[in-house]
Design a binder for these strands. Structure first.
Length: 158
DNA sequence: TCATTCAGCGTAT
DNA sequence: ATACGCTGAATGA
């Protein structure tokens, strides 16, 4: 049985869902709680709302600019390919406030830069896997959830 | 199996 | 600034 909880941020309400295996999904803050609810249920339809979860508390602190450490959270592996797991594990090692290039992650994982971008695009737990800290050799590169958020998150950690 | 889709990179104009 | 070509992994037909 999967559980989900809201978290609050200066940009609105977000949500996080987890199974017995670990965190399944994080959605970035939405303007309204209704939007957050719809978004989390789209990806995790069988989730049951609970008052709070450890991950939700930490996300709230993160968005309020506090120093946070997500390294102890386990990710639900069921929806990930082996190569995606490698890329995500490597990405989680990037310290807050720092960035790495796609090429750097590629070297560490034995993949090609383009494959790294593709694996990061498939990440469904933003922040916990800090995919916004991975940038192109020249410029920022892309971001599935909107460049607005990539810039905003990097600024938040700066 | 084959075709399509990319969050990249380097080189050249 | 734009235009190529080279890439490999995932996905859908």
């Amino acid at each position: 049985m999967k559980k989900t909880a809201y978290y609050d941020s200066p940009w609105g309400t977000g949500a996080v869902a987890e199974s017995e295996e670990g965190v399944v999904k994080v959605i970035l803050p939405k303007k309204t709680k209704q939007e957050a609810k719809a978004a989390i249920l789209t990806d995790v339809p069988d989730a049951v709302f609970v008052k709070s979860l450890p991950a939700a508390k930490l996300l709230s602190l993160y968005f309020n600019g506090k120093k946070t450490d997500f390294s102890s959270f386990h990710l639900d592996p069921s929806a990930a390919t082996p190569k995606q797991k490698k890329v995500w594990a490597e990405t989680r090692k990037i310290p807050s406030g720092e960035t790495r290039t796609y090429g750097h992650i590629a070297e560490k994982t034995g993949l090609r830069p383009r494959a790294v971008g593709q694996a990061l695009k498939a990440n469904h737990t933003p922040i916990i896997v800090p995919c916004h800290r991975v940038v192109a050799a020249k410029g920022l590169g892309g971001y599935n959830l909107g460049m607005m958020w990539k810039k905003r998150l990097l600024r938040l950690e700066h």
